[in-house]
Simulated assay, not measured.
Amino acid sequence: MNLEATQTETDFLVPFGETLLCLGQAFLTPKESERANALRDDLVPDLEALREATGVPAAGELDALASALRSTADAEGGLLRVYSRLFLAPPFPAPLNAGIQLDGALMGQSTVEMERFYQRHGLTRDREFRDLPDHLALQLQFVAFLHAKAAETEDREECAAIAGDARYFVRQLMLSWFPGWLEQLDEAVTHLPTAEAWRQLGRVTREVLEADVVYLEALAPEVHAETAARPSLEEALDARMAPERSLEAPAACRVCGKEFAMGRDMVFMLQQLQARGLETEHLEACPDCRAGEMGLSETTVELPAAVSKHV
């Protein structure tokens, strides 16, 4: 391999990766004073320094972000209060979970696909990370990891394959929901002016991701064969339950004795618990009896209007 011939093609990987890592940290809950201070004082200077290598975001965007962050930090309750109202406290107007934006639900098919990407590259969630695997902060940090991984390899084909995964992940599992999410932030600002800080942060993040995809396309102009051959989500769900397909047959409820269909997700959960030698009795009941034992009644989850109109 001629490293000199490919050096300019991969120069963007490290600075873009570091930029995405900075943005990923910025979307974590600013509950500690150190994190809030870093968000207010350090984020924009760090992005400005990296901009010399990436060309993004535009200087005007960074100026607007710096101003908005200072304004929000100085408001009553500071950055944490606004972050909580936007992303944590129901009815959250602009969820940071990609699954809600893409599927209209938590832990849906999109989240399954994200987790397959994490596992494909040998990653599991840090136990200290308390949110779900489709959180924007985790997505950004994962793509940053792929950039570092691609930059470290001296194998051109492996580098292109990793870049192909990064490009697919950004296009399909991130940028695909950004337009609707930014509209939600636009709406939120009309009711909560201090939300401007995260609207500007969202715009900067989109600009960086869009530029990154262009570079990734140049590095891996064709979808890598292994990526193209990736099974569909339905096939993946079937494959992971293949060893014990008999469990999909109607099961008898241990409480009322009535037959019920467990469903593929429940079957998979049952298999995982059995494989670990854990108790599965609580799953061997029909939905009505299972809910009754837990003191629950059937309910319907209503998503916020800002989310519902985009799913």
Rank of each mutant, 00 (worst) to 15 (best):
A98C: 03
A148S: 14
V44P: 02
A137D: 01
L233Y: 03
Q271L: 13
R230H: 09
E207Y: 01
A144E: 06
A195M: 02
C253N: 05
E183V: 10
R245K: 13
A5Y: 06
A242M: 08
C159G: 07
L47Q: 03
R51E: 03
H121A: 04
L69S: 02
V143T: 12
T10V: 12
D238H: 10
N2W: 04
L3T: 13
M269D: 03
D265T: 01
Q172E: 15
R127P: 05
Q139D: 13
P231W: 14
A285K: 13
R116K: 07
L209M: 09
R276L: 15
F169D: 07
A242H: 08
D155E: 14
T227N: 10
V14Q: 12
G17A: 11
Q101E: 14
V214F: 03
N97P: 01
D265C: 00
K309A: 14
L123F: 07
G122K: 03
T8F: 05
R130M: 04
A228V: 06
P304H: 10
A211L: 04
Q25E: 11
L102F: 09
G104P: 05
A36T: 07
L96V: 05
E281G: 13
D11C: 08
L278A: 10
L23V: 09
L132K: 01
R35D: 07
G277V: 11
D126Y: 04
A239L: 10
L21G: 07
A188Y: 08
A89H: 10
L102E: 12
P133C: 09
V112K: 00
A218L: 12
E61R: 12
T10A: 13
E226V: 13
A197K: 02
A261C: 01
Q119N: 09
V214R: 14
L3I: 11
S71T: 15
L173Y: 14
A220P: 01
M241Y: 00
A211P: 00
P91N: 08
S176V: 11
G60I: 00
S71Q: 14
D126T: 07
R206H: 12
N37S: 14
E248Y: 11
L237E: 09
V267K: 13
S110C: 09
L96A: 08
V56L: 15
V82A: 00
H135I: 04
D11K: 11
F16R: 14
L278S: 06
G99P: 02
E284T: 09
G257S: 06
G164P: 01
